[in-house]
């Protein structure tokens, strides 16, 4: 495995490697944010590491560990196709701080860093084109942060007014398991037949038993 890579990183960067661990073939090094770019460059350029394949770059949010530890883990996954080993490099940043971009080392980092910025709001310093890549420009906030409200949507155009009686009663009865299920009502013993798909979201649909009876009726034949 690539514990040899971890040993070389520790020998090269010393105290800047805050932690290193290996678990079932996965090797990981935690580096200080100031050495993020230098460590990545070393991984790519050192003859024994030779990480020529950029796999992915992503972020994990741990808001509960603030203020003792910065909330964001920035993770870099790289592999050496020639040496047949791979390693995970990690650093930690606080909200509002940034890390150096890796686009100068691997071109592929461009879009993954944009995605990480889009979802978590961590800035990549020196990135040539740091814009949102998935969400729209008008979107406020960063949706994959754990403190983003789980039910909050930001429609670009206002919704039409739709009468609840004209909504599609989708749910378990449509013959597939992915309907929006009103679990709270189910646990309370109500709405056992169907799940009030849209009504739950709009908070205005208590029961769907009428619709269930409608569904049970055979459709009238084409009358032409």
């Amino acid at each position: 495995m690539s514990q040899k890579v971890l040993a070389r990183l520790k020998a090269r960067f010393g105290e800047a490697i805050l932690a290193a661990e290996s678990f079932r073939g996965d090797d990981e090094a935690l580096v200080a944010p100031d050495n993020w770019l230098a460590a990545a460059r070393y991984l790519r350029d050192d003859a024994e590491c030779a990480m020529n394949h950029f796999i992915d770059l992503t972020i994990v949010d741990y808001p509960e560990r603030e203020p003792a530890t910065p909330r964001f883990d920035v993770l870099l996954f790289v592999r050496s196709l020639g040496k047949n080993h791979r390693v995970r490099l990690k650093t930690r940043v606080r909200d509002g701080e940034g890390v150096d971009t890796l686009t100068g080392l691997w071109e592929g980092a461009n879009w993954t860093e944009r995605e990480a910025y889009d979802m978590f709001g961590v800035k990549f310093l020196g990135h040539p084109d740091l814009r949102r890549i998935l969400m729209y420009e008008e979107f406020v906030g960063y949706p994959l942060r754990k403190d983003y409200p789980i039910g909050k949507t930001q429609p670009l155009i206002p919704y039409r007014e739709v009468a609840p009686s004209k909504l599609a009663p989708f749910g378990a009865d449509e013959g597939q398991p992915y309907g929006r299920i009103d679990w709270l009502a189910r646990m309370a013993g109500r709405n056992l037949q169907v799940s009030p798909a849209i009504g739950v979201q709009q908070g205005q649909r208590p029961a769907l038993s009428v619709d269930t009876e409608d569904l049970a009726q055979p459709r009238k034949p084409n009358g032409n």
């Binding site: 039910g151 429609p155 039409r160 739709v162 004209k166 909504l167 992915y178 929006r180 849209i198």
Partner: peptide, 17 residues
């Protein structure tokens, strides 16, 4: 109705549009 995408990114049914 949006299907199982009950989140920040999906329109919950095109009849909203």
């Amino acid at each position: 109705c949006g299907g199982f995408y009950d989140n920040y990114t999906t329109v919950p049914g095109i009849d909203k549009i």
